[in-house]
């Protein structure tokens, strides 16, 4: 069976060691983490971790998500296929300035790929592009004809096609629950 790419989004409290707990669960299922990014979310105190993985079985991804959610400090976890989300990655390419000028295509490339120069000096030039993996890869292939000195691509970040952060309702429910418990005491 062919592997399908999944984006797993995890909302969590900020605890030391949480990333290890998360990666342990992927390891136990023999799943590769192709990219990972962690950041704040729009909800105060809640962090979000976005992981790209692939599997031949959606059931396996569902199991992983259930086990992630079982961790005490994980608030919620979700998984998506590419069509359910809007996602981007950021890529940086470092080129020799002389070679870049020599090739004579720099303006073309920047325009066609919607990329831009973030730093340029006599020795090297750094180009930045955001996009999907195929797009940043395609620019890499073009630039590498003239020799890319360094290349990095960030982990994927993604937002859902739904209106709000998907955990907002859950957090609101939990706040009500907390008030109820405190009132009972």
């Amino acid at each position: 069976m062919e592997n399908k790419t999944y984006t797993v989004t995890i909302y969590s409290e900020n605890q030391i060691g949480l990333l290890m707990q998360i990666s342990n669960i992927f390891t136990r299922h023999s799943l590769s983490i192709w990219s990972l990014s962690a950041s704040a979310s729009s909800i105060e105190g809640i962090h979000t971790i976005t992981i790209i993985t692939d599997s031949p079985s959606e059931k396996q991804i569902l199991e992983v998500v259930m086990q992630l959610e079982k961790r005490v400090d994980v608030v919620k976890a979700f998984y998506y296929t590419n069509d359910q989300i809007i996602y981007r990655e950021l890529a940086l390419y470092k080129m020799q300035t002389a070679k870049l000028l020599e090739c004579g295509r720099i303006e073309d490339l920047l325009t066609n790929y919607n990329a831009r120069i973030v730093e340029m000096n006599n020795v090297f030039t750094v180009i930045q592009k955001t996009g999907k993996t195929e797009e940043t890869q395609s620019l890499y292939d073009e630039l590498n004809k003239y020799g890319v000195m360094q290349f990095v691509r960030s982990g994927r970040i993604a937002v859902t096609r739904e209106k709000l952060e998907p955990v907002k309702d859950f957090i609101a429910e939990r706040e009500l629950e907390k008030n109820k418990i405190n009132k009972e005491l």
Partner: peptide, 8 residues
């Protein structure tokens, strides 16, 4: 402890 936000 009687409540943890992230834990149901």
């Amino acid at each position: 402890c009687n409540f943890i936000r992230s834990y149901v």
